[in-house]
Write a protein that binds this DNA or RNA. Structure first.
Lengths: 349, 349
DNA sequence: CTGAAAGCGCTTACAG
DNA sequence: CTGAAAGCGCTTACAG
């Protein structure tokens, strides 16, 4: 490969410029320390030689020789660029691309990782993980063992979203607990006393966070919560249960579930949102229910991306000695979207 | 970097397994030719040693030693992952990711390339281009010099979209000329005799292709075309000119322009599409005019992606001897979307 | 101020 | 069947 395509090397540049290959390297990297001092004349000759050719340093060689490559890995446990997943990953990827640009880094997407029962594996025979200086991890479900291995090997990485599948995993996520508390407080203000929480069976940290806050609020009062796993994804059945429960507020785990539920409730003749309010514990951007803006959260995903890349760079650059001083688990504050589907409880309800 | 993180090497594996480093490499790469024949017992010992550690081959070293890396570069002359550009790049990137998965390749996005007056530069001081086995090029405007340089250096690459900025550029694109002819034929069938072609001042091959077909059709008759550069992007002014021209058909270069024009024509009291038909010479997926499906093209962008990666892999694998036999300039056929905005010319018009 | 030399981790002829 | 050695293109002490 390398030989076939006659691409120029430092050796040739050196020959043309009449200097040693070392000097070419020195000029190229602007080395100018105590021991090296190359006169402008020499530098200039080297530069001219480079311009004559099409020389660019071979990144593989640079990497092998111990330099950072300014390549950040992006690993997604699920396919990142499909039409469906773009809704979720899109703003994140956008932010990552922007941040990478700003940090002058390239992005290596590990699309080759073999998929095993629905999720990619990070470690495999030919993983190119190590070609990157560090790696961003995206996905709902992450493999605890892989996370632990990354941590123990000291490979710089940052997960997007709070993680507790393994000890000491660096992450940047959204503070869903705080957001959930805020939403509940608002529901209480609006007079609700009986609610249903409809959630999937996702066993992710942020999923558990939301559930924990819901349960804490239910125990604390005055808003009682009935927790309803949306088994089998049958919104109609779930809607019936909700109606029977007499709740005046439905909280869904995410905006898509909220929309599905709203549709099902509507079909059962429930007047939304006057009779029953509905809200989602997730990003509600551009989600609506009967033309009304869905109540829920705004999650600053672009900011997450920047923060994650920032943290990753800190970890990469970190002097092992004081790497411990870095705050490697960060939760960003989202904001409540009041929306139009969480309204005051009717006096007669 | 490499030394700090104590990641295992073949040397250590060799020590553990009690063999030479060469043997480890041989086992790892399943070499089993005429000169090498490693008994299963030895192989097994090596494999066990590998499993004890967290060894993975260093891709930089492999690359330097002359192997393919299974890394394909993706270079976009404009930002690829922004919300706006996703409309255009989304299906393309989706296809590229899928194809890369299938081909067992990773994707390196050159996000670090410096932006000079609105467009990225492929060649620069620290370009990591060469880390990839080859590269996919995306974007409206490509730099002719860069293309020429890629060609002359023999670096494997494939542009998305027809290119003629430089000689011998491999590409996979859409046959816009054929599509444009089809659309014109349909307009003729529908009785139109006077049309206006509104186009930007983009100087890209596919832009010129469309214009060329329009002009040829105009010269040929029976549909006469007035070509109208949408200077300054003032749809209202353009709409006035169209009305004055008495044309019964407006053809816009792309769907967005068509939508803008339709709006402007509507404001001037033109009844679309009865009085004036409108169509776009581009992908019209999910574009509408007054609730009507816009007439235009469907461009198989996911197929383009697959085709482009396929061609790229051919070029990478190509034996230099018979590389010439590869068809490196491919146009895919799109399909006409009849839509609802290109209708029969009114009898009294 | 500049060059010869070692080394990064791997692959692949080439000898045994 | 297996190992010692050269080499991929670079960086960086280390000597001059």
């Amino acid at each position: 490969m390398s030989g076939k395509t006659g691409k120029p090397t430092q050796k040739e540049i050196a020959r043309i410029a009449g200097v040693s290959q070392t000097t070419v390297s020195l000029v190229l990297n602007d080395r100018d320390g105590t021991n090296v001092r190359i006169p402008e004349a020499t530098r200039e000759r080297v530069r001219r030689a480079i311009e004559q050719t099409t020389y660019v340093a071979d990144p593989a060689a640079r990497r092998l020789a111990g330099l950072d490559n300014k390549i950040l890995g992006v690993f997604t446990y699920e396919s990142a660029l499909t039409a469906e997943s773009m809704d979720f990953y899109g703003p994140l990827l956008n932010g990552i691309e922007r941040a990478a640009e700003q940090y002058d880094c390239d992005l290596l997407f590990f699309t080759s990782s073999p998929v095993e029962n629905g999720s990619r594996r990070l470690f495999h025979r030919n993983t190119r993980l190590r070609l990157a200086d560090g790696c961003i991890l995206l996905g709902q479900h992450m493999d605890g063992e892989e996370l632990a291995r990354l941590v123990s090997e000291g490979f710089p990485f940052v997960a997007v979203g709070r993680r507790d599948e393994a000890e000491g995993v660096p992450y940047v996520g959204i503070d869903y607990r705080a957001l959930t508390r805020d939403l509940i407080a608002r529901a209480v203000e609006l007079g609700h006393t009986s609610a249903v929480y409809v959630h999937g069976d996702r066993d992710t940290p942020s999923s558990r966070d939301r559930l924990a806050e819901i349960e804490a609020a239910g125990a604390r009062g005055p808003l009682s919560f009935r927790s309803l796993p949306d088994v089998g994804g049958d919104p109609a059945a779930t809607a019936r249960t909700i109606v029977e429960s007499g709740a005046t507020l439905v909280v869904a785990e995410d905006a898509f579930a909220a929309e599905d539920l709203a549709l099902a409730l509507d079909r059962q003749g429930v007047a939304l949102p006057i009779e029953v309010s509905i809200a989602a514990l997730g990003e509600v951007q551009s989600h609506t229910v009967k033309g009304l803006r869905l109540s829920g959260f705004h999650t600053p995903r672009q900011r997450i991306a920047f923060e994650a890349l920032g943290l990753l760079r800190e970890l990469i650059a970190a002097d092992p000695e004081r790497a411990d001083t870095i705050d490697r688990q960060r939760l960003l504050q989202g904001s409540l979207e009041p929306g139009e589907t969480l309204v005051a409880r009717r006096a007669d309800a």
